[in-house]
Nucleic acid binder design. Structure first.
Lengths: 340, 340
DNA sequence: AGATTTAGGTTAAACGTTTAACTAACTCTA
DNA sequence: TAGAGTTAGTTAAACGTTTAACCTAAATCT
């Protein structure tokens, strides 16, 4: 049987209250007794019982991580990496993270994840999108929430975001710097803040480069930024303007779809058109040619989210830094080249 | 505040003990009072406090999932998928799964994962390899353990395994059926049971096909079944026997490395040599040509492990089915073809 | 010097369950 | 019809913490 606080108290010759106070390093304890107790703790290899502590403090030590289930089906483990980042972020803290998925189209009939119903978490991290229906239900419970790579436009939420605007800018600027003028943009799910911002960055960089924004160079009506939609978006784009020499895809999945379209239609990348994606997904280096892209530090998004939610839990009236912006980086590979 | 068992008891007009017994559906309770209590539970939306329950039963409701940290660095999320499978497996159970990683070279100086030290798990699932040092330390704690895709050769452990022997057989048989005679095998980390068994399957299928096993056709001295080692193994293999017309790589990572070697040396796949891998990793379909391989159901490995450990925890003297074998499947793509 | 404050610790109640031991009301059986 | 069994529920202790309230001795003040 594991040692309890009583064993420690007896060994150190103090009351259990003192042991408890030492653990929380309360100011009332002298360093003398503190070291005495700490010694006993070490010798017994004592670890407080999370259950007992939880029972009185009404905390669980768990953080829930919620993902829509379609990420399981996607080939790219984008959010899975973020999850791994949260796991890493909990080292040095006293938290564990529990994973759950919800339906992509979560609605009022669906059950909330088990750990929420059972109140087994002290806070929740929501990665990617979640339906308003879901967010509403969670908010009623008034559990601290942190979003990653998404946030409901109504309300002021704690969020860890990718610096999408800047990403859009440097991606587009890269193309402009290479001498391209007819630069296309293909995107899906434009209402999603991330996609929207990438598009905004595209427009800003165009303007900064003295290139007039042209609706003909954009295909933004796909409902999802997926591979097949990248394929069809590329098709539409070339139909709209056959003089396109460069494409900025709102993410790598669409870029891969677009690349496939080009291959199928004898459009050489990067000789005929340059292509840049966004995310820096693992498949990129296997592509032919390897894809130039904007790297999103997925792991870091997770660790940042943990730090943030820790603060929110600790200090419910935590106000500074509601939004944390994680920087991105241009990764030049072989799918873009100077316009001759 | 969440309702407690007292609230339910009051509402249903019974004692809290009765409520508790109803929840565990104990035989002593009549259906009449049972429905009465159940109704109160539903109306109050009552969920028992895991902490309180844990305090008295000395259980936590958590299962630990342990992975060596090098899987984070690998590009292929093989074990991550298995982890996702365990998460899925816990639906309908009362367990949560906690993830932790340990150093690949875990030794006596390293600390055990936090959830083990703090006794926050009722059982542990170990995926892939773990050092003897680690396993020894865990065993002392006498926490139920289930291995996935690995098991220490000494001792009789609960394990969920890939049917590697059969996988090795059908992979090799596929090559034999295509008319190949000079079939190479490249592998790394041969002591690992999974790799060892794939190699065993290779030999069995060769024999069954009336082909004599030839050491010259094998490169099995790489220490890791990684991509770069696949590259060098392919190099060695062709140096040993230039008449090779087909290669069975012990996993997709090595197959990818081998494919790279072939590309670099103008060896056409599948025209000059057929290549088959093992695992069915996501990159496979992006390769040129897409890789024929043996599919291992990663997700299912996870769910099976949860079912197994649940039984082990419930019934410490659980004896039947110490080892569960999960079947594999041949996936024919374009990297193998009939020998003309 | 006596009163008051402070420092450093202890006591005991409370958190929400489970479960062994108990009880009251029936039902048999001889 | 008395006694033994059975059935269905209750009582109360226990689990291992935290923390408000309390205590005592020493330090500080007037």
């Amino acid at each position: 049987m594991s040692p309890t606080i009583k064993d420690v108290a007896k060994k150190a010759g103090v009351s259990i209250a003192t042991v408890s106070l030492v653990i929380q390093n309360h100011a009332r304890i002298t360093t003398a007794t503190k070291t005495k107790v700490l010694k006993a703790i070490k010798e017994l290899n004592y670890h407080p019982s999370r259950s007992a502590k939880g029972l009185v403090t009404k905390t669980t030590g768990n953080i829930g991580f919620i993902l829509t289930d379609d990420h399981f089906l996607q080939t790219e483990p984008f959010y899975t990496k973020i999850f791994l980042g949260t796991e890493f972020g909990t080292r040095g803290t006293n938290y564990y993270v529990l994973l759950a998925t919800i339906a992509r189209d979560f609605n009022s009939k669906d059950e909330l994840p088990r750990f929420i119903l059972e109140r087994s978490v002290d806070g929740i991290i929501i990665a990617g999108k979640a339906t308003p229906d879901f967010i509403e239900r969670i908010e009623l419970l008034d559990i601290p929430i942190v979003f990653i790579d998404y946030y409901p436009t109504s309300g002021n939420f704690f969020t860890v975001l990718i610096d999408n605007i800047n990403g859009g800018i440097i991606a587009t600027k890269h193309l402009v710097d290479l001498g391209h003028k007819e630069i296309g943009f293909i995107g899906g799910d434009l209402p999603h803040p991330s996609i929207y911002d990438r598009f905004a960055g595209y427009k800003q960089a165009l303007e900064a480069g003295g290139i007039k924004f042209n609706k003909k160079n954009c295909v933004i009506d796909e409902d999802d930024p997926s591979r097949p939609n990248g394929y069809s978006a590329a098709k539409k784009l070339f139909a709209q303007n056959k003089k396109i020499t460069a494409i900025f895809a709102c993410n790598d999945a669409m870029a891969i779809g677009a690349m496939q379209y080009c291959t199928d239609n004898k459009i050489k990348i990067p000789n005929d058109v340059s292509l840049i994606g966004f995310d820096d997904v693992e498949a990129d280096i296997f592509l032919n040619p390897p894809l130039t892209t904007i790297k999103v530090p997925k792991f870091e998004l997770g660790t940042e989210a943990i730090h943030l939610i820790e603060n929110v839990i600790k200090n419910k009236s935590y106000h500074n830094k509601k939004k944390i912006l994680v920087p991105v980086e241009l990764i030049i590979r072989n799918s873009t080249r100077e316009l001759k």
